[in-house]
Write a protein that binds this DNA or RNA. Structure first.
Length: 640
DNA sequence: CTAGGGTTAG
């Protein structure tokens, strides 16, 4: 026999109808006023029901309190929160600590919750508990005004309120968000005084804080002091290494974790970080190992990981593998499509990138800013001028996306490479926001390609005005002069650079063989096999000369005689790395290089001819793109 | 007592 009281039945059915109404209002996104008003009436019925109004506000009945809590839990719209809030004030349930904490927590955590709202409610609580203080500080730390969390924390201390480890944790999060070193140092001091220095979770947050503030040494010091380190702690260490360009250490940590030396296994977040490290190191092989690990661990369906894999493979020049990952994804989002599009663009497959973009639209995925950056860069790298201009117009007209600096940058590159220098200049001048130095630099590059000295000088003037000239800019200007044979000006710029102590970034090329990274700089003599390498380079030189390779003298800075120039050029880091690649790998093996600058005309020609004479595929990643050399051709469509 | 912290794709 069921023994259910009448009131219990009515309560249950009211809640049931409330919940079904809530789900209806959620699924029909746009404002259907009738459904929301009926929902409001249901809510007010519940809230005003006789059994909900306690005779004595503080000791409201157990059932009413429980029902209010479940209402708070299931609340799915801001207006419902407002009604519950009003009800709490009316019935003075605020003095029930369970209710006020639940409500505060709900307000600050719900997707539609706002700090301002939480703050208002918090101020109505007479004597906030530690939990309520913490909840409020947490809300601030995740909001747009994290500093308010620190003010509240100071207020707590001033009032002599008790704090705990969580309080510090949320404060650290605020400091991290503000990147406030002084604030964080103060909190760190308090953590030590309060005796919380063995709380691993707190220390992990502290590590991340130091890492964000570019204090990697302090971050590592905190890591060393941790009593125990779980996967998250290791992940924060890895992300710290990533931020501080210690990418090789990231791979070492991953190996150590796999080898059981860390007492915990890599998780999905670890893999995300390690893949980023592989991407920047051009470590295709290692990235493949991470891919295998991801599959072993059953993370294969994780969208973020797949997106990261697409980026890693395409930036390492392995577009076919990138595409395989993409094809295998059951759920693709805008990031997946954009990663594919940028990957194709970087690898010189402009037409395919546009195809992918059109397929994305057919799949009803809405493009965002970064998608357009990919599409426009595809056009610029492949010299698709008309298409690029069309997409540039479409993005604001059809998708309401206002072009940002990256989009303008692509367009300047597109027009500039195509020789439409004046049009590129006009575009920069028409920008609504102030053009940054990168944009001018792009145009300067185009001036160098098209030997446009006058515009090049004007661009340098703009850079000077921005106080943003870099060593590379002078080199570009210098190259522009040298490309038209104005050696007088070349000498002038060189003297200026020397007098002002302007140092150029040294070119550096890496090649990875069997997991070992070999690094070459210009005229490098540090490699253990340097004698063999230089001998090989001579041999290659004479072979290529027979096939018609002529050193391109205009790439060189010096006004030397042709013979001397030829000699200087032969020692570029790219060439040394290629010679080592030919030397150290069996015939037919693909040679993969990464360079930190843009490849010069001469090395480009060198690699082209070599790919045919030695029948080797050569893939070079430079600062902006990948070059696939095969059979005497390059995938890129640059106007050298 | 109540709530419950740290890392995360293009």
């Amino acid at each position: 026999m069921k023994l259910v009281t009448a009131s219990a039945v009515s309560q249950r059915s009211l809640l049931a109808s409330l919940n079904s109404n809530l789900s209806v209002s959620l699924s029909s996104s746009s404002s259907s006023s009738s459904s929301s008003s009926s929902l409001a009436s249901v809510l007010s019925t519940v809230l005003n029901a006789e059994h909900m109004r306690p005779a004595n506000p503080v000791s409201c009945s157990q059932g009413a309190s429980e029902q209010l809590i479940s209402l708070i839990k299931s609340c799915a719209h801001e207006s419902h929160l407002l009604q519950i809030h009003a009800h709490i004030l009316r019935t003075r349930s605020l003095e029930d600590p369970t209710i006020s904490l639940r409500f505060l927590s709900r307000v600050s955590l719900s997707p539609f919750g706002r700090v301002s709202y939480a703050r208002r409610f918090f101020s109505q609580i007479k004597n906030p508990s530690l939990a309520e203080f913490n909840t409020m500080i947490r809300a601030y730390s995740g909001s747009d005004s994290p500093e308010e969390g620190l003010y509240l924390y100071r207020e707590m201390r001033r009032l002599g309120e008790r704090t705990n480890s969580l309080t510090s944790s949320f404060c650290i999060k605020s400091c991290t968000k503000m990147a406030s070193l002084t604030g964080g140092l103060q909190i760190h001091g308090r953590i030590v005084r309060d005796g919380h220095q063995s709380d691993s979770l707190l220390l992990t947050a502290l590590m991340d804080f130091y890492s964000i503030c570019c204090k990697s040494e302090q971050a590592c010091a905190v890591f060393d002091e941790m009593p125990e380190r779980d996967t998250v702690a290791w992940n924060v260490l890895i992300s710290c290494y990533l931020r501080n360009c210690r990418t090789r250490d990231v791979l070492a940590v991953f190996d150590a974790m796999i080898g059981g030396e860390c007492g915990c296994q890599p998780d999905d977040v670890t893999c995300l970080h390690v893949l980023q490290a592989c991407t920047s190191l051009n470590a295709l092989e290692f990235g493949g190992r991470v891919h295998e690990y991801i599959q072993e661990r059953g993370y294969g369906d994780a969208v973020k990981l797949c997106n990261s894999l697409i980026t890693m493979y395409s930036r390492c020049g392995s577009m076919d593998k990138a595409f395989m990952v993409f094809k295998g994804m059951r759920v693709k989002n805008v990031v997946s499509w954009s990663a594919l599009i940028s990957g194709l663009a970087m690898n010189g497959k402009g037409r395919e990138a546009i195809e992918a973009y059109l397929a994305m639209l057919r799949a009803n995925v809405v493009p965002d800013d970064q998608t357009f950056t990919g599409v426009l860069s595809a056009c610029s790298h492949s010299g698709l001028v008309e298409e690029g201009m069309l997409f540039f117009e479409e993005m604001s007209k059809d998708f309401q996306r206002m072009p940002n600096v990256h989009h303008y940058g692509c367009m300047v590159d597109l027009l500039g490479r195509a020789g439409l220098l004046d049009q590129a200049y006009e575009l920069i001048m028409s920008m609504s926001s102030k053009p940054d130095s990168t944009i001018w630099r792009t145009l300067l590059g185009a001036c160098r390609i098209h030997r446009h000295v006058a515009l090049g000088e004007r661009v340098v003037w703009h850079l000077t005005e921005l106080k943003a000239q870099e060593a590379g800019d002078y080199v570009l200007l210098l190259n522009t002069y040298s490309s038209v044979g104005d050696w007088e000006r070349v000498t002038e710029v060189r003297k200026f650079m020397k007098d002002n102590g302007i140092q150029t970034t040294p070119g550096c090329t890496t090649i990875t063989l069997n997991g070992i990274v070999h690094e070459f700089t210009v005229d490098d003599v540090s490699h253990p096999r340097q004698n063999e390498i230089y001998t090989m380079l001579d041999e290659i030189g004479s072979q290529l000369k027979i096939a018609g390779y002529v050193p391109e003298i205009s790439s060189e800075l010096h006004n030397l005689s042709s013979e001397e120039k030829g000699y200087r050029l032969s020692n570029h880091s790219e060439k040394l790395a290629i010679a080592f690649g030919i030397l150290a790998t069996p015939p037919g093996t693909t040679i993969r290089l990464a360079n930190n600058l843009r490849i010069c005309v001469d090395c480009h020609n060198f690699a082209k001819v070599l790919s045919s004479v030695y029948d080797r595929m050569v893939i070079i990643r430079d600062r902006s793109r990948l070059h696939h050399f095969q059979g005497g051709h390059c995938s890129c469509n640059d106007y050298w």
